[in-house]
């Protein structure tokens, strides 16, 4: 009984896990907000930027989950997404500006 009384109210590990859980919820809320922007628009560039922001949120969630589970392999996900995340943005941008995403020959 005395030992519990003397122990700190919140251990360091416990604190980390609570913060990570809270951050996960926060990022999920951010996804909700970005989702609103994608759905409402009003222009396509708005939607694309919001979608890109969601991708960034996914990176954050992967890292947070890596912290939560203490398994570094989830960082791989964020790395991969970080590398290729801009591909979709570029594609949409090209679609909007030029109307032709992959060009061929002398067209």
């Amino acid at each position: 009984m005395i030992a519990t009384h003397l122990a700190p109210l919140v251990t360091a590990a416990d604190l980390t896990s609570r913060v990570v859980d809270g951050a996960l919820v926060f990022v999920a809320l951010l996804c909700l907000l970005c989702g609103y922007r994608v759905i409402r628009g009003p222009t396509i560039p708005d939607r694309v930027v919001a979608l890109d922001a969601i991708a960034t949120n996914v990176i954050a969630i992967a890292v947070l989950f890596a912290l939560k589970t203490d398994r570094g392999l989830f960082v791989t996900i964020s790395i991969v997404l970080a590398i290729i995340g801009f591909l979709s943005t570029v594609t949409v941008a090209k679609y909007v500006t030029e109307g032709d995403i992959i060009t061929r020959g002398n067209e």
């Binding site: 591909l87 995403i101 060009t103 061929r104 020959g105």
Partner: peptide, 25 residues
């Protein structure tokens, strides 16, 4: 670790499509 034929495959595809988008077919 995470990975394998499917994931490596689709990632390679992503790399090549990036080339296509940037430089044409």
């Amino acid at each position: 670790y995470p990975g394998g034929g499917f994931i490596g495959g689709v990632l390679t595809v992503a790399a090549f499509t990036l080339v296509y988008v940037a430089y044409g077919l």
